[in-house]
Nucleic acid binder design. Structure first.
Lengths: 226, 226
DNA sequence: CGTACAATTGAAGGACATCAAAAGCGGTGG
DNA sequence: CCACCGCTTTTGATGTCCTTCAATTGTACG
Protein backbone atom coordinates (compact mmCIF):
# COMPACT_ATOMS: atom_id res chain seq x y z
CA UNK A 1 0.00 0.00 0.00
CA UNK A 2 2.81 2.41 0.73
CA UNK A 3 5.17 3.02 -2.18
CA UNK A 4 8.47 1.22 -2.14
CA UNK A 5 10.42 4.47 -2.45
CA UNK A 6 12.07 5.35 0.82
CA UNK A 7 13.58 8.50 2.20
CA UNK A 8 16.63 8.18 4.40
CA UNK A 9 16.93 10.21 7.59
CA UNK A 10 20.07 10.68 9.62
CA UNK A 11 19.61 10.42 13.38
CA UNK A 12 18.88 13.81 14.89
CA UNK A 13 17.27 15.35 11.81
CA UNK A 14 13.65 16.47 11.65
CA UNK A 15 11.23 14.71 9.37
CA UNK A 16 8.48 17.19 10.17
CA UNK A 17 8.76 20.62 11.70
CA UNK A 18 5.84 22.06 13.61
CA UNK A 19 4.06 24.73 11.64
CA UNK A 20 5.19 23.33 8.30
CA UNK A 21 2.71 22.20 5.73
CA UNK A 22 2.95 18.42 5.73
CA UNK A 23 0.46 16.81 3.38
CA UNK A 24 2.11 13.39 3.56
CA UNK A 25 1.67 10.50 5.93
CA UNK A 26 4.68 8.27 6.44
CA UNK A 27 5.34 4.67 7.21
CA UNK A 28 8.44 4.18 9.31
CA UNK A 29 10.48 1.44 7.65
CA UNK A 30 13.57 1.39 9.80
CA UNK A 31 14.88 3.17 12.89
CA UNK A 32 13.12 5.00 15.72
CA UNK A 33 11.59 8.47 15.71
CA UNK A 34 9.93 10.68 18.28
CA UNK A 35 7.28 13.38 18.20
CA UNK A 36 7.96 16.49 20.29
CA UNK A 37 7.17 20.06 21.13
CA UNK A 38 9.38 22.95 22.09
CA UNK A 39 8.17 25.69 24.42
CA UNK A 40 9.07 29.29 23.61
CA UNK A 41 11.95 29.20 26.12
CA UNK A 42 13.43 25.98 24.80
CA UNK A 43 12.00 23.39 27.14
CA UNK A 44 11.20 20.24 25.20
CA UNK A 45 8.49 17.64 25.72
CA UNK A 46 8.68 14.36 23.87
CA UNK A 47 5.17 13.12 23.22
CA UNK A 48 5.51 9.83 21.41
CA UNK A 49 8.10 7.31 20.27
CA UNK A 50 7.56 5.51 16.98
CA UNK A 51 9.07 2.15 16.09
CA UNK A 52 9.39 0.51 12.67
CA UNK A 53 6.14 -0.36 10.90
CA UNK A 54 4.33 2.52 12.54
CA UNK A 55 2.58 5.41 10.90
CA UNK A 56 3.98 8.93 11.25
CA UNK A 57 2.25 12.25 10.97
CA UNK A 58 -1.28 10.91 11.00
CA UNK A 59 -2.03 14.10 12.90
CA UNK A 60 -1.92 17.45 11.14
CA UNK A 61 -5.15 16.08 9.81
CA UNK A 62 -7.43 19.01 9.46
CA UNK A 63 -5.45 21.97 8.27
CA UNK A 64 -2.56 20.06 6.77
CA UNK A 65 -0.16 21.96 9.02
CA UNK A 66 1.91 19.93 11.46
CA UNK A 67 1.13 20.62 15.11
CA UNK A 68 4.18 18.74 16.36
CA UNK A 69 7.68 18.10 15.14
CA UNK A 70 9.00 14.63 14.39
CA UNK A 71 12.68 13.80 14.67
CA UNK A 72 14.72 10.72 13.83
CA UNK A 73 16.19 9.25 17.01
CA UNK A 74 18.45 6.90 15.09
CA UNK A 75 19.22 6.72 11.41
CA UNK A 76 15.89 5.88 9.84
CA UNK A 77 14.02 5.30 6.62
CA UNK A 78 10.46 6.26 5.81
CA UNK A 79 8.16 6.12 2.83
CA UNK A 80 5.40 8.64 2.37
CA UNK A 81 2.09 8.97 0.65
CA UNK A 82 -0.39 11.84 0.36
CA UNK A 83 -2.85 11.99 3.20
CA UNK A 84 -5.84 11.95 0.86
CA UNK A 85 -4.70 8.76 -0.73
CA UNK A 86 -4.44 7.02 2.62
CA UNK A 87 -7.91 8.21 3.57
CA UNK A 88 -9.26 6.98 0.27
CA UNK A 89 -7.65 3.59 0.61
CA UNK A 90 -8.93 3.25 4.14
CA UNK A 91 -12.44 4.00 3.00
CA UNK A 92 -12.32 1.52 0.14
CA UNK A 93 -10.72 -1.43 1.88
CA UNK A 94 -12.16 -2.05 5.33
CA UNK A 95 -9.11 -4.06 6.29
CA UNK A 96 -6.84 -1.03 5.96
CA UNK A 97 -9.39 1.22 7.56
CA UNK A 98 -9.58 -1.03 10.56
CA UNK A 99 -5.83 -1.19 10.81
CA UNK A 100 -5.66 2.58 10.75
CA UNK A 101 -8.34 2.90 13.40
CA UNK A 102 -6.46 0.45 15.59
CA UNK A 103 -3.32 2.48 15.18
CA UNK A 104 -5.05 5.70 16.18
CA UNK A 105 -6.59 4.00 19.18
CA UNK A 106 -3.18 2.69 20.14
CA UNK A 107 -1.71 6.18 19.98
CA UNK A 108 -4.47 7.51 22.17
CA UNK A 109 -3.88 4.80 24.75
CA UNK A 110 -0.15 5.47 24.74
CA UNK A 111 -0.73 9.19 25.16
CA UNK A 112 -3.01 8.62 28.15
CA UNK A 113 -0.55 6.15 29.62
CA UNK A 114 2.25 8.71 29.33
CA UNK A 115 0.11 11.43 30.81
CA UNK A 116 -0.64 9.25 33.81
CA UNK A 117 3.02 8.44 34.03
CA UNK A 118 4.22 12.00 34.05
CA UNK A 119 1.44 13.30 36.22
CA UNK A 120 1.21 10.75 38.96
CA UNK A 121 4.28 8.56 39.19
CA UNK A 122 7.70 8.94 40.77
CA UNK A 123 10.85 9.18 38.67
CA UNK A 124 11.63 5.49 39.30
CA UNK A 125 8.20 4.41 38.21
CA UNK A 126 8.17 6.67 35.18
CA UNK A 127 11.46 5.39 33.91
CA UNK A 128 10.61 1.77 34.53
CA UNK A 129 7.25 2.28 32.89
CA UNK A 130 8.70 3.85 29.75
CA UNK A 131 11.43 1.27 29.39
CA UNK A 132 8.99 -1.55 29.96
CA UNK A 133 6.58 -0.13 27.42
CA UNK A 134 9.29 0.11 24.80
CA UNK A 135 10.56 -3.34 25.64
CA UNK A 136 7.08 -4.70 25.04
CA UNK A 137 6.62 -2.76 21.84
CA UNK A 138 9.84 -4.16 20.44
CA UNK A 139 9.47 -7.75 21.59
CA UNK A 140 5.69 -7.89 21.62
CA UNK A 141 5.78 -9.59 25.01
CA UNK A 142 6.79 -8.99 28.60
CA UNK A 143 10.38 -9.64 29.65
CA UNK A 144 10.59 -13.09 31.13
CA UNK A 145 14.11 -14.33 31.78
CA UNK A 146 16.85 -12.52 33.71
CA UNK A 147 19.10 -10.64 31.32
CA UNK A 148 16.55 -10.48 28.54
CA UNK A 149 17.68 -7.54 26.48
CA UNK A 150 16.41 -5.29 23.74
CA UNK A 151 17.85 -2.48 21.61
CA UNK A 152 16.84 0.87 23.08
CA UNK A 153 18.61 3.82 21.50
CA UNK A 154 17.60 6.44 24.06
CA UNK A 155 19.95 8.96 25.58
CA UNK A 156 19.28 9.98 29.15
CA UNK A 157 18.43 13.41 27.87
CA UNK A 158 15.72 11.98 25.62
CA UNK A 159 14.30 9.96 28.48
CA UNK A 160 14.27 13.10 30.61
CA UNK A 161 12.37 15.11 28.02
CA UNK A 162 9.87 12.32 27.56
CA UNK A 163 9.19 11.98 31.29
CA UNK A 164 9.33 15.54 32.54
CA UNK A 165 12.62 15.11 34.39
CA UNK A 166 16.20 16.35 34.05
CA UNK A 167 18.89 14.19 32.53
CA UNK A 168 20.87 14.39 35.76
CA UNK A 169 18.03 12.93 37.71
CA UNK A 170 17.42 10.28 35.07
CA UNK A 171 21.05 9.34 35.40
CA UNK A 172 20.88 8.90 39.15
CA UNK A 173 17.61 7.00 38.96
CA UNK A 174 18.91 4.67 36.26
CA UNK A 175 21.94 4.16 38.48
CA UNK A 176 19.59 3.11 41.26
CA UNK A 177 17.77 0.62 39.07
CA UNK A 178 21.11 -0.80 37.98
CA UNK A 179 22.55 -1.06 41.50
CA UNK A 180 19.42 -2.72 42.76
CA UNK A 181 19.66 -5.30 40.03
CA UNK A 182 16.40 -4.38 38.34
CA UNK A 183 17.42 -3.15 34.91
CA UNK A 184 20.37 -1.62 33.14
CA UNK A 185 20.48 0.67 30.12
CA UNK A 186 23.87 0.85 28.38
CA UNK A 187 25.14 1.61 24.93
CA UNK A 188 21.68 1.65 23.45
CA UNK A 189 20.64 -1.68 24.93
CA UNK A 190 18.29 -2.39 27.81
CA UNK A 191 19.13 -5.38 29.98
CA UNK A 192 16.33 -6.54 32.22
CA UNK A 193 18.07 -7.97 35.27
CA UNK A 194 15.04 -8.88 37.36
CA UNK A 195 11.98 -9.25 35.13
CA UNK A 196 9.54 -9.67 37.97
CA UNK A 197 10.46 -6.55 39.88
CA UNK A 198 10.87 -4.61 36.66
CA UNK A 199 7.39 -5.48 35.41
CA UNK A 200 5.89 -4.71 38.78
CA UNK A 201 7.58 -1.34 38.97
CA UNK A 202 6.66 -0.48 35.38
CA UNK A 203 3.02 -1.34 36.06
CA UNK A 204 1.76 -1.27 32.48
CA UNK A 205 -1.99 -1.14 32.17
CA UNK A 206 -3.42 -4.36 30.93
CA UNK A 207 -5.17 -2.62 28.04
CA UNK A 208 -1.87 -1.45 26.73
CA UNK A 209 -0.49 -4.96 26.78
CA UNK A 210 -3.60 -6.15 25.01
CA UNK A 211 -3.21 -3.56 22.31
CA UNK A 212 0.43 -4.41 21.87
CA UNK A 213 -0.42 -8.07 21.63
CA UNK A 214 -3.14 -7.33 19.12
CA UNK A 215 -0.76 -5.35 16.96
CA UNK A 216 1.40 -8.43 16.97
CA UNK A 217 -1.41 -10.70 15.79
CA UNK A 218 -2.27 -8.28 13.06
CA UNK A 219 1.26 -8.18 11.77
CA UNK A 220 1.46 -11.92 11.82
CA UNK A 221 -1.79 -12.25 9.90
CA UNK A 222 -1.19 -9.58 7.31
CA UNK A 223 1.58 -9.47 4.77
CA UNK A 224 3.26 -6.10 4.93
CA UNK A 225 4.07 -3.91 2.00
CA UNK A 226 7.80 -3.91 1.51
CA UNK B 1 -28.33 12.45 14.65
CA UNK B 2 -28.20 11.52 18.30
CA UNK B 3 -31.53 10.41 19.73
CA UNK B 4 -33.46 12.91 21.77
CA UNK B 5 -33.62 10.59 24.78
CA UNK B 6 -31.28 11.74 27.49
CA UNK B 7 -29.83 10.12 30.54
CA UNK B 8 -29.35 12.26 33.62
CA UNK B 9 -26.17 12.02 35.67
CA UNK B 10 -25.66 13.44 39.13
CA UNK B 11 -22.34 15.17 39.69
CA UNK B 12 -19.74 12.74 40.97
CA UNK B 13 -21.21 9.61 39.41
CA UNK B 14 -19.46 7.54 36.77
CA UNK B 15 -20.88 7.32 33.28
CA UNK B 16 -18.28 4.75 32.27
CA UNK B 17 -16.09 2.59 34.44
CA UNK B 18 -12.79 1.37 33.12
CA UNK B 19 -12.91 -2.29 32.23
CA UNK B 20 -16.66 -2.24 31.63
CA UNK B 21 -18.11 -3.15 28.29
CA UNK B 22 -19.32 0.12 26.82
CA UNK B 23 -20.73 -0.24 23.35
CA UNK B 24 -22.30 3.22 23.30
CA UNK B 25 -20.93 6.57 22.33
CA UNK B 26 -22.44 9.58 24.05
CA UNK B 27 -23.13 13.17 23.25
CA UNK B 28 -22.80 15.41 26.26
CA UNK B 29 -25.90 17.60 26.32
CA UNK B 30 -25.42 19.49 29.54
CA UNK B 31 -22.82 19.73 32.31
CA UNK B 32 -19.13 18.91 32.41
CA UNK B 33 -17.45 15.51 32.64
CA UNK B 34 -13.89 14.28 32.91
CA UNK B 35 -12.04 11.18 31.82
CA UNK B 36 -9.63 9.67 34.33
CA UNK B 37 -7.54 6.76 35.48
CA UNK B 38 -6.84 5.37 38.90
CA UNK B 39 -3.53 3.71 39.73
CA UNK B 40 -3.54 0.55 41.85
CA UNK B 41 -2.67 2.57 44.96
CA UNK B 42 -5.39 5.15 44.46
CA UNK B 43 -3.52 7.99 42.75
CA UNK B 44 -5.75 9.59 40.14
CA UNK B 45 -4.89 11.23 36.85
CA UNK B 46 -7.51 13.26 35.04
CA UNK B 47 -6.93 12.99 31.31
CA UNK B 48 -9.57 15.09 29.65
CA UNK B 49 -12.39 17.48 30.43
CA UNK B 50 -15.50 17.40 28.25
CA UNK B 51 -17.90 20.31 27.81
CA UNK B 52 -21.42 20.30 26.41
CA UNK B 53 -21.79 19.29 22.75
CA UNK B 54 -18.77 17.05 22.95
CA UNK B 55 -18.57 13.35 22.27
CA UNK B 56 -17.83 10.93 25.09
CA UNK B 57 -16.37 7.48 25.01
CA UNK B 58 -15.22 7.59 21.42
CA UNK B 59 -12.33 5.50 22.70
CA UNK B 60 -12.90 1.91 23.77
CA UNK B 61 -13.04 1.55 20.05
CA UNK B 62 -11.50 -1.78 19.29
CA UNK B 63 -12.50 -4.23 21.96
CA UNK B 64 -15.59 -2.40 23.15
CA UNK B 65 -14.14 -2.33 26.66
CA UNK B 66 -13.56 1.07 28.21
CA UNK B 67 -9.92 1.87 28.88
CA UNK B 68 -10.70 4.92 31.00
CA UNK B 69 -13.44 5.94 33.37
CA UNK B 70 -15.66 8.94 32.77
CA UNK B 71 -17.26 10.84 35.62
CA UNK B 72 -19.74 13.69 35.76
CA UNK B 73 -18.10 16.76 37.26
CA UNK B 74 -21.41 18.58 37.61
CA UNK B 75 -24.92 17.33 37.15
CA UNK B 76 -25.07 16.39 33.51
CA UNK B 77 -27.18 14.92 30.76
CA UNK B 78 -26.06 12.69 27.91
CA UNK B 79 -27.65 10.83 25.06
CA UNK B 80 -26.11 7.69 23.67
CA UNK B 81 -26.06 5.67 20.52
CA UNK B 82 -24.38 2.38 19.59
CA UNK B 83 -20.87 2.79 18.35
CA UNK B 84 -21.59 0.92 15.12
CA UNK B 85 -24.38 3.25 14.25
CA UNK B 86 -22.14 6.27 14.65
CA UNK B 87 -19.48 4.67 12.48
CA UNK B 88 -22.09 3.87 9.87
CA UNK B 89 -23.48 7.37 9.85
CA UNK B 90 -20.01 8.83 9.63
CA UNK B 91 -19.25 6.68 6.61
CA UNK B 92 -22.47 7.54 4.83
CA UNK B 93 -22.55 11.28 5.39
CA UNK B 94 -19.14 12.89 4.86
CA UNK B 95 -20.21 15.93 6.83
CA UNK B 96 -20.61 13.90 10.00
CA UNK B 97 -17.48 11.94 9.29
CA UNK B 98 -15.49 15.11 8.99
CA UNK B 99 -16.96 16.47 12.18
CA UNK B 100 -15.99 13.28 13.96
CA UNK B 101 -12.47 13.40 12.57
CA UNK B 102 -12.14 16.99 13.70
CA UNK B 103 -13.24 16.00 17.14
CA UNK B 104 -10.71 13.21 17.38
CA UNK B 105 -7.97 15.52 16.17
CA UNK B 106 -9.00 18.06 18.75
CA UNK B 107 -8.76 15.47 21.50
CA UNK B 108 -5.30 14.48 20.34
CA UNK B 109 -4.16 18.08 20.39
CA UNK B 110 -5.57 18.60 23.85
CA UNK B 111 -3.87 15.47 25.11
CA UNK B 112 -0.51 16.61 23.77
CA UNK B 113 -1.03 20.06 25.19
CA UNK B 114 -1.76 18.57 28.60
CA UNK B 115 1.25 16.30 28.39
CA UNK B 116 3.50 19.24 27.65
CA UNK B 117 1.86 21.11 30.47
CA UNK B 118 2.39 18.44 33.06
CA UNK B 119 5.83 17.48 31.87
CA UNK B 120 7.53 20.77 31.34
CA UNK B 121 5.75 23.63 33.05
CA UNK B 122 5.72 24.99 36.59
CA UNK B 123 2.65 24.79 38.78
CA UNK B 124 1.77 28.43 38.01
CA UNK B 125 2.00 27.87 34.30
CA UNK B 126 0.11 24.61 34.42
CA UNK B 127 -2.78 26.10 36.30
CA UNK B 128 -2.93 29.21 34.14
CA UNK B 129 -2.74 27.08 31.04
CA UNK B 130 -5.57 24.79 32.09
CA UNK B 131 -7.82 27.61 33.19
CA UNK B 132 -7.10 29.54 30.03
CA UNK B 133 -7.82 26.52 27.88
CA UNK B 134 -11.14 25.94 29.56
CA UNK B 135 -11.99 29.63 29.35
CA UNK B 136 -11.40 29.49 25.61
CA UNK B 137 -13.35 26.30 25.18
CA UNK B 138 -16.35 27.81 26.91
CA UNK B 139 -16.26 31.25 25.35
CA UNK B 140 -14.63 30.29 22.05
CA UNK B 141 -12.29 33.25 22.34
CA UNK B 142 -9.49 34.62 24.49
CA UNK B 143 -10.34 36.67 27.56
CA UNK B 144 -10.15 40.33 26.63
CA UNK B 145 -11.48 42.70 29.27
CA UNK B 146 -10.49 42.80 32.93
CA UNK B 147 -12.96 40.83 35.02
CA UNK B 148 -14.18 38.70 32.14
CA UNK B 149 -15.56 35.64 33.81
CA UNK B 150 -16.70 32.15 32.94
CA UNK B 151 -18.31 29.24 34.81
CA UNK B 152 -15.64 26.77 35.83
CA UNK B 153 -16.90 24.07 38.17
CA UNK B 154 -13.52 22.67 39.21
CA UNK B 155 -12.50 21.88 42.75
CA UNK B 156 -8.87 22.40 43.64
CA UNK B 157 -8.58 18.67 44.05
CA UNK B 158 -9.76 18.11 40.49
CA UNK B 159 -7.29 20.66 39.19
CA UNK B 160 -4.55 18.93 41.14
CA UNK B 161 -5.35 15.53 39.67
CA UNK B 162 -5.47 16.96 36.18
CA UNK B 163 -2.11 18.68 36.50
CA UNK B 164 -0.05 16.26 38.53
CA UNK B 165 -0.03 18.40 41.68
CA UNK B 166 -1.47 18.25 45.17
CA UNK B 167 -4.58 20.19 46.10
CA UNK B 168 -2.61 22.02 48.79
CA UNK B 169 -0.17 23.32 46.27
CA UNK B 170 -2.94 24.21 43.85
CA UNK B 171 -4.51 26.21 46.62
CA UNK B 172 -1.35 28.17 47.33
CA UNK B 173 -0.66 28.74 43.67
CA UNK B 174 -4.20 29.92 42.99
CA UNK B 175 -3.78 32.21 45.97
CA UNK B 176 -0.70 33.64 44.31
CA UNK B 177 -2.51 34.25 41.03
CA UNK B 178 -5.28 35.97 42.94
CA UNK B 179 -2.98 38.14 45.06
CA UNK B 180 -1.03 39.20 42.02
CA UNK B 181 -4.21 40.27 40.30
CA UNK B 182 -3.98 37.78 37.46
CA UNK B 183 -7.00 35.55 37.90
CA UNK B 184 -9.34 34.34 40.57
CA UNK B 185 -11.29 31.09 40.84
CA UNK B 186 -14.18 31.15 43.30
CA UNK B 187 -17.46 29.36 43.75
CA UNK B 188 -17.19 27.68 40.41
CA UNK B 189 -16.46 30.85 38.47
CA UNK B 190 -13.20 32.04 36.98
CA UNK B 191 -12.59 35.77 36.98
CA UNK B 192 -9.80 36.92 34.72
CA UNK B 193 -8.36 39.98 36.43
CA UNK B 194 -5.53 40.79 34.04
CA UNK B 195 -6.23 39.22 30.64
CA UNK B 196 -2.87 40.11 29.17
CA UNK B 197 -0.71 38.56 31.88
CA UNK B 198 -3.08 35.63 32.16
CA UNK B 199 -2.91 34.80 28.47
CA UNK B 200 0.85 35.18 28.47
CA UNK B 201 1.26 32.90 31.46
CA UNK B 202 -1.15 30.33 30.04
CA UNK B 203 0.75 30.28 26.74
CA UNK B 204 -1.74 28.28 24.70
CA UNK B 205 -0.34 26.92 21.48
CA UNK B 206 -1.73 28.71 18.48
CA UNK B 207 -2.93 25.45 16.95
CA UNK B 208 -5.13 24.85 19.91
CA UNK B 209 -6.68 28.27 19.56
CA UNK B 210 -7.19 27.58 15.89
CA UNK B 211 -8.93 24.32 16.58
CA UNK B 212 -11.13 25.94 19.18
CA UNK B 213 -12.00 28.69 16.76
CA UNK B 214 -12.74 26.16 14.06
CA UNK B 215 -15.05 24.25 16.35
CA UNK B 216 -16.86 27.49 16.84
CA UNK B 217 -17.27 28.13 13.11
CA UNK B 218 -18.48 24.62 12.62
CA UNK B 219 -21.10 24.97 15.28
CA UNK B 220 -22.22 28.25 13.84
CA UNK B 221 -22.52 26.78 10.37
CA UNK B 222 -24.21 23.54 11.31
CA UNK B 223 -27.51 23.10 13.07
CA UNK B 224 -27.02 20.87 16.06
CA UNK B 225 -29.19 17.91 16.93
CA UNK B 226 -31.22 18.81 19.98
C1' DC C 1 -27.97 23.61 63.31
C1' DG C 2 -25.15 19.93 62.22
C1' DT C 3 -22.89 17.29 58.74
C1' DA C 4 -19.88 16.81 54.73
C1' DC C 5 -16.95 18.59 51.72
C1' DA C 6 -13.92 22.35 49.90
C1' DA C 7 -10.67 25.94 50.84
C1' DT C 8 -7.03 27.71 53.60
C1' DT C 9 -2.93 27.99 56.43
C1' DG C 10 1.42 26.45 58.97
C1' DA C 11 5.48 23.68 59.64
C1' DA C 12 8.71 20.39 58.11
C1' DG C 13 10.58 17.12 54.83
C1' DG C 14 11.77 15.12 50.43
C1' DA C 15 12.10 14.49 45.56
C1' DC C 16 13.88 16.58 41.98
C1' DA C 17 16.36 20.71 39.87
C1' DT C 18 20.36 23.55 39.14
C1' DC C 19 25.15 24.47 38.68
C1' DA C 20 29.54 22.81 37.78
C1' DA C 21 33.02 19.77 36.57
C1' DA C 22 35.18 15.36 35.46
C1' DA C 23 35.33 11.12 33.05
C1' DG C 24 33.95 7.82 29.35
C1' DC C 25 33.23 6.95 24.54
C1' DG C 26 32.86 7.02 19.51
C1' DG C 27 34.35 9.27 15.48
C1' DT C 28 37.76 11.87 12.51
C1' DG C 29 41.89 13.37 10.79
C1' DG C 30 46.70 13.89 10.93
C1' DC D 1 48.01 4.81 16.13
C1' DC D 2 47.37 8.67 18.72
C1' DA D 3 45.37 13.28 19.47
C1' DC D 4 41.55 15.70 19.42
C1' DC D 5 36.66 16.79 19.31
C1' DG D 6 31.83 16.55 20.59
C1' DC D 7 28.48 14.15 22.94
C1' DT D 8 26.86 11.37 26.67
C1' DT D 9 27.35 9.70 31.21
C1' DT D 10 28.58 10.28 35.85
C1' DT D 11 29.28 12.55 40.27
C1' DG D 12 29.14 16.28 43.97
C1' DA D 13 27.18 20.16 46.35
C1' DT D 14 23.49 23.06 47.05
C1' DG D 15 18.94 24.94 46.42
C1' DT D 16 13.91 24.95 45.73
C1' DC D 17 9.51 23.63 44.30
C1' DC D 18 6.27 20.81 45.68
C1' DT D 19 4.60 17.29 49.03
C1' DT D 20 3.10 15.58 53.38
C1' DC D 21 0.84 15.94 57.65
C1' DA D 22 -2.25 18.27 60.43
C1' DA D 23 -5.46 21.50 61.87
C1' DT D 24 -8.68 25.42 61.15
C1' DT D 25 -12.02 27.97 58.59
C1' DG D 26 -15.48 28.57 55.13
C1' DT D 27 -19.58 27.05 52.45
C1' DA D 28 -23.48 24.37 50.78
C1' DC D 29 -27.24 21.59 52.07
C1' DG D 30 -30.90 18.84 54.42
Amino acid sequence: MFPAAVRELAGGTDLIKRGQRSPDVFLLRRGWTFTYRILPDGRRQILHFALPEEILNHGAGISGVATESIQALTDAAVSGMPREQLGMTARLTPEIGHQLATHLERCRLLAYEHMTNIGRRSARERIASLLLELYCRVHRRLPAAPNDSVPMPLTQNVIADALGLTSVHVNRTLGGLRDEGIARLRHGTLHVLDPERFVELGDLSSELLTIIARASERDAAMPRAR
